[in-house]
Design a protein around this nucleic acid. Sequence first.
DNA 1: GGCCAATCTGCACGGAGTGCAGATTCGCAC
DNA 2: GTGCGAATCTGCACTCCGTGCAGATTGGCC
Lengths: 142, 142
Amino acid sequence: MRTPNELAEAFRARGLKLTPQRQLLFRLLHDNTTHPSAEALFLAASEQMPGISLRTVYQTLNDLVTLGELQQIDFVPGSARFDPNLSDHQHLVCDRCGAVRDVHLPLGDLAPAAPSAVEVDFRIESTTVVFHGRCGACAVAD
Amino acid sequence: MRTPNELAEAFRARGLKLTPQRQLLFRLLHDNTTHPSAEALFLAASEQMPGISLRTVYQTLNDLVTLGELQQIDFVPGSARFDPNLSDHQHLVCDRCGAVRDVHLPLGDLAPAAPSAVEVDFRIESTTVVFHGRCGACAVAD
DNA sequence: GGCCAATCTGCACGGAGTGCAGATTCGCAC
DNA sequence: GTGCGAATCTGCACTCCGTGCAGATTGGCC
């Protein structure tokens, strides 16, 4: 995801308005590696802007996803998560506490091989790799 | 997933009762490669047993997942899907119509390498690979 | 046949996310 | 600085998926 200032530019360039709510969410998301849910972002935003609506958080997140500035993560049970990291990477998901972490692995050579091996009538457009397990704290707690 | 008869044995062995509803669902799931949702199974079951409750379908699916006879698939938007194929395999997901298909790819050598490369405090227990794209019919329809 | 626990059914309920309508406000023009 | 119109925000109702609960039913064993 781009910086709050760059996003402000991008929004204005598309005729979208730059509201305080949006600016706050840009800041809360930038460099955020916690893969927050809409609800988590709403709570964080509410601290700095009491009265902000959960509906606005959902709306802004959807806008950012549509603009390609944010990646939506749907493979964690419960609610959707959002990832400002747009680089090609994979995720570690803790099945106990739900934490999500990024990992950059050199799978580029692996994924291309797989599709070619598929002798079926299907057009593969993207490959998702998710590692499930236990984060450090939860591995100990078990 | 085992055969309906084997499942009947397994259920009885655990003190679980063998009801007509369960037997019907065993049959509908065995060798089913469509990765049905609870709703889809409910519709199929209703044809052969009008009056069966959606609640019962959910309950039986959960039981089978708990017994390890059925795999629950959570990476398709919408409702959960169920897969009686317990072998190590991957999935093709059509992002347009939601169809799910199995593929068996030799990724065994690939996945083990990845975890070892992870220099983080995380215990990896399983690796999920999902290929997103368009099934044959949807690729044409676009 | 009879009993009792397991199961089934129907309905209410909870979490996640969206549609809608009215109030508000951003961005631009003067 | 003021005014205007469209975009946005807010709050609420609503949908969808799945679960909790309670009473009626029934499978499995004596």
